[in-house]
């Protein structure tokens, strides 16, 4: 008996296993934070969601450039798929962050914090990206406009990443600071959850691109059969 292993399913399997390991690490292996308590455990998947959205918007940025250079629609398809996934995970990051904020700061949102504000702008830009695609008249104008929009929108990603490191307002900086660095067990839990979400991203991207390709082929066949 032969088993046919699909690479996409294998990636999904790895993502699920890593997610289960990271849940174990986040809830059982890591100690309770001395000042924040258990609510600090939100951060393992909040950071992983934010990372995934940065990665996804980064892929949209790169594939947008590739599209504008080559005018090959395959790059547009990947850019769009990645933008959609980025929006989903950016939504999760900006929803879970305020839940942590309410417990630690006593407020869901702090408008004066530039990290929060820039991330919200990033999310809104990519929501507009989707609206723009939905309303574009032709395939070419849709691809051109969204490539330009995706490239411009990406500017917010490094700004969002760097905001708390530059201005040091309310949002904590947990990586790359000597005084705020994590305990090794916490760092490991965070690392595994980030890797797990990266595998999840690859699986979602392949699935979304497959779906959009299939949809296009079906539309073409329908037109031929109908005509």
């Amino acid at each position: 008996m032969r088993f046919k292993i699909n690479i996409k399913d294998l990636i999904f399997g790895v993502a699920i296993i890593l997610i289960l390991i990271s849940i174990y690490l986040a809830f059982i292996y890591t100690p309770t934070h001395t000042t924040m308590g258990d609510v600090q455990r939100i951060f393992y998947f909040h950071v992983a969601s934010a990372w995934l959205s940065y990665l996804a918007f980064g892929v949209t940025f790169v594939t947008g450039i590739f599209y504008l250079k080559s005018k090959d629609f395959k790059w547009d398809k990947i850019a769009f798929a990645s933008a959609e996934i980025g929006i989903v995970f950016c939504t999760l990051a900006i929803t879970t962050g305020p839940l942590w904020g309410k417990a630690v700061w006593g407020a869901f949102w702090r408008w004066e914090d530039l990290k929060l504000f820039i991330t919200l702008v990033l999310w809104l830009i990519f929501i507009a990206y989707l609206a723009l695609r939905a309303n574009a008249k032709s395939k070419v104008s849709k691809a051109n406009l969204s490539a330009v929009f995706g490239i411009i929108g990406f500017i917010c990603v490094p700004l969002s990443f760097a905001a708390n490191r530059i201005w040091q307002q309310y949002h904590p900086t947990v990586i790359a600071t000597s005084e705020g660095s994590l305990q090794s067990s916490m760092g490991m839990a965070l690392g595994i959850s980030v890797i797990a979400f990266t595998f999840l991203y690859i699986y979602l991207l392949i699935s979304k691109v497959e779906i959009d390709t299939m949809r296009e082929i079906i539309e073409e066949i329908k037109q031929k059969v109908g005509g």
Binding site: D38, R41, T91, L99, A103, I211
Partner: peptide, 24 residues
């Protein structure tokens, strides 16, 4: 208790991931 925020955050994350995977 602050734990309600922890539960809410994890519910949001896993419901979001599950719904998006299901949609695809």
């Amino acid at each position: 208790s602050d734990l309600i925020y922890l539960y809410a955050a994890y519910t949001v994350i896993w419901a979001g991931v599950f719904l998006y995977v299901l949609k695809l």
